[in-house]
Design a protein around this nucleic acid. Sequence first.
DNA 1: CCCTACACGC
DNA 2: GACGTACGTGTAGGGA
Length: 876
Amino acid sequence: MKKIVLVDGNSIAYRAFFALPLLNNQKGEYTNAVYGFTTMLLKVLEMENPTHMLVAFDAGKETFRHQTYAAYKGTRQKTPSELSGQIPLIHDVLKAFSIPRYEAKSYEADDIIGTVARRAAKEDYKVVVVTGDKDLLQLVDQNIEVVLTKKGMSEVDRYDEAAIHERYGLTPTQIIDLKGLMGDSSDNIPGVPGVGEKTALKLLAQFEDVETVLASIDQVSGKKLKERLTENQEQARLSKKLATIFTDMPLEETLDAFTYTGYDEEQVRAVFRELSFHSLLERIGQGEAPEESSDFAPLPYEVVKKPEEKHFASPSALVVEMFAEHELQGDLIGMGVANENGRFFFPVDVALSSPLFQDFITSATVEKWLFSAKQSIVALEKRGLSLQGVTFDLQMASYLLDPSVSAEEVGDVAHRKEMKVVRSDEAVYGKGAKRHIPDEDELSEHVCRKASALYELKPLLANELAENKQDELFYELEMPLSLVLAKMECTGIKVDIAQLKAMGKDLSARIAVLEREIHAEAGVSFNINSPKQMGTILFETLALPPVKKTKTGYSTSADVLEKLRDAHPIIELILHYRQLVKLHSTYIEGLLKVVDATTHKVHTRFNQALTQTGRLSSADPNLQNIPIRLEEGRKIRKAFIASKPGWKIVAADYSQIELRVLAHICGDENMKRAFLEDMDIHTKTAMDVFGVSEQDVTSAMRRTAKAVNFGIVYGISDYGLSQNLGISRKEAKDFIDRYLVSYPKVKEYMEDVVTKARKKGYVETLLARRRYLPELNSRNFNQRSFAERTALNTPIQGTAADIIKMSMVQMDKRLQTSPLAATLLLQVHDELIFEVAKDDVASLKALVLEVMEHALPLDVPLKVDVSSGDSWYDAK
DNA sequence: CCCTACACGC
DNA sequence: GACGTACGTGTAGGGA
C-alpha cells in the first residue's frame, strides 16, 4: 500500500518555535523551531513509515485569498525574526533527509496539501496530514487522516472522520461552515460577529451548513442572533470561502515526484552536528561514529625513542596523558608534543629518563601550551618534575570565552571549532568497567592528535580572548592562579585522623540510639535513610499530614519536617538523626576515605573552569562545604590542623564582599555610606526596610533584613525569599519592594543590567568575566525570570570571585618574596586558609589584611576578618 | 550505572 | 495568574 505523509511546514515550525525555549547552536543561531520540527519529522517517519512524503511551505505574502479579501491575515503579527531565520535551516534538514519540499506562488501550504491529498486519495493512497492548524481537518475523508500537534509538541491528536464527529459532532466538510460562522481571528477571517464555537456548533447541528442556516434564519432561536445572521450573510459566505482549502491548484508533478525511500544517515548526522543536535545524533544511532579515526585525515606523527632538540621547539603544545580521573592518583601513560617540527609521542620511560625532555619540562623560557595546565603540573610534580613555562591553558581559555560549555578534553574544544582531528577519550579508552589502556599505536596517535589540535587551537582562542578584551583576566589572573592552585593541591591540608575516628565512634553510638528510638516511635523497623520508606511511615502508618510531594512520593525534607515538629515526637528524632548521619557518612567516613595514609593529608582538587559565576569548586574531598553553622558539625573543623609542629592555622574572610561589590557597581549612596561608616549592614537594611531607628531594630527584623540581603546576593526570587523566611510570597515581594525603595540605585542597576544583557547577550564582571544569558529572550516566564535574576547576580558574585582570586595571586607572590614561613592551603569563596609558623602569625595576619583589603580598590572599603588557632575550628 | 532525594557550605 | 526558583559536591537508596 502506498502511503503519503504531507507536512504543513510553516505551521509545524511556528508551533515548535512557541513551544520550545530559544536554543542556539555553536554559531549562535537560534534552533528551537528547527529542533522541534526535526523531532516531529523523526517521529512521523518512525510512526508512519511512508512511501511518499512532502513538506509544504507558504511562499510570499500575497495569495489568491487576498484578492478576494484584502484584510486576509491582516491582524497577524509579523513572523519574529528569530523564527524566520530558522526556515532556511529547516530546508537544510529536509535536504539532508531527502524529503521534497514544495511551495507555490500565491498559494498557501494548506492549498498544496489539500491538492496533493485529494489527488493521492483518489489514487487510493493512504494520506496522513501533519499540521498544527485545525483548519486542515476539513480535508479528512476515508483515505485522509489529519495529525494535529498539541501544545507541548510532545503529543499529537489523530483525526479520522469518526474522531472529528466525536470531538465536534460535525463532518469534515462542516469544519468549513464552522469557520464561516465563527471566523478565525488568527487569519482575520470575520465570520458572524457574536457567534463563537458554541453557537456555531449549535447552528450546524440544526442546519447542516452555512447556506441552510442563512436560508432558515427565521427558525433560529434568539432575537439578537437572528439580527446578526441577517446583517452578516455576505460576510458569512465570504468567511466560508476564505476558510475553504483549495484542492485543485495546478500541479505539474506526478505523485511519483514525492517518493520517499529513506535518508542517508551520514548526511543527516552532518546537519545535526552543524545544528548541535546532540540528543538527536544519539537517537538516530551511532552508525560510523563521527570521531572514529578512519573519518579523519591521516596525521603524521612520530613515536620517539631518542629525544632530540627538534622535538622541543618553543612554543610547543604539550599533552601529559594520564589514565585516571584524578591527577594525584593516576599513572602517566605517555607524553605528546606538537610544534613547528611535527608531532611526537614519548613513551613514559623514554620521557622521564631523557635529560632533554626534563629540560624541556622545567625550562621557563620554552613556551608550553596545555589543556588543563594545573592537572599536568600536579601530575609531574608528583614525579619530581617542576613544569615551567606554561603560557597558555586551552581549557581555561575556553571557559573564560563561555563558561556554559564544558570542555573536559581537547576534543571538546576542537569539536566546537569544527576541527575534526581528535577522538574523545571515551572512544579511545572506553568507559566504566570496559575502561582500558589501548595498544601503543592507538594511544600514541590519540595523544599526538590531542597535541596537534591544541597547537592549532591556541591561536584561535587567544584571538577570541583578545577580541573580548579578556586578555588581562586570562593572562594576569586565571593563568597565574592555576599555578597557585596547583601548589595548594600538592600541599594539601593535614587531618587529625585519631580525632576524626573518635568523633566517628561517638556519632555511631548516638546514631544507634536514635535509630532505636525512631523505630520505637514508629512501631516498626524501617530504613530511616530511605526517603521512600520514611514517607510511608510518616504519612501512612503515622498518618501525619503530608506537606509537600516530590515526583516520586512524599517529601521528607528538613523544611517539611520542621512544619511537623509539633505533630509527633518522631520528627525531632528524625531531624537529629539526619544531622548526625550526614556528619558521619559525609564528613567522617567520607573524609577518612580520602586521607593519605602516610602523610595524613587530604588533597582537594579545585576546579577552576566549571562554575557559571567564576567561583572555584572543590572536590575529592570538597573542602568548601565543611560544616560551620551548627556547633555539632562545626567540631569537624577541629580535625583540620597545621602540618608542622608549632604551626598555626590562620583564616581570613571577607566581610560582606558581595554587598560591598553591589554598592560599588550600582553606586547607591545610602548603601555606600553604610559601608563607609562600617555599619552592620543587616541592621542598616532593617532600619531602612522597616523605617525604624537603630535601637528599635529587633532581632526578627534583622533576620528578615539578612534574608533579603542574602536574596539579593544569590539572586533568589520573591518565592525563594518567602521559603527562606517562612512567609507568604506577597510579604516577601513587599520586603523586596521596600528594599528597592531604600536603595534606589540598586533598582536602577537591576533594570539596567537586564536591558544591557538582553542587547549584548551576556553580562560581565569588573574584570570582564562573561556569562551568556540567551534565556533573557525566552518566552517561558520561568526561564526568562531566572535569566533576569542571573543577570543581576552574576556580576556581583563573579566580581567577588575575581577579587578573592586576585588576593590569592598576590598573596602567593608576596609569600614567595617574604621570609614568612606560611602557606596558602584553601579557598572557600570569600575566605582564605593558611598555615603558618607560630612566630609568624602576627606578620602573616598583617600581610593578609593588607593584600586582601586592597586586592581591587572599590568605592567602598573591603573588610577582612582574620583569626588564628591550632585548628580550623579554633581560627574563628 | 544512573537517577532522585537530601543536606552541607557560600 | 501560573510557572518552580542561587551555585556547587557527596551520600544513600532504589530500579534497570
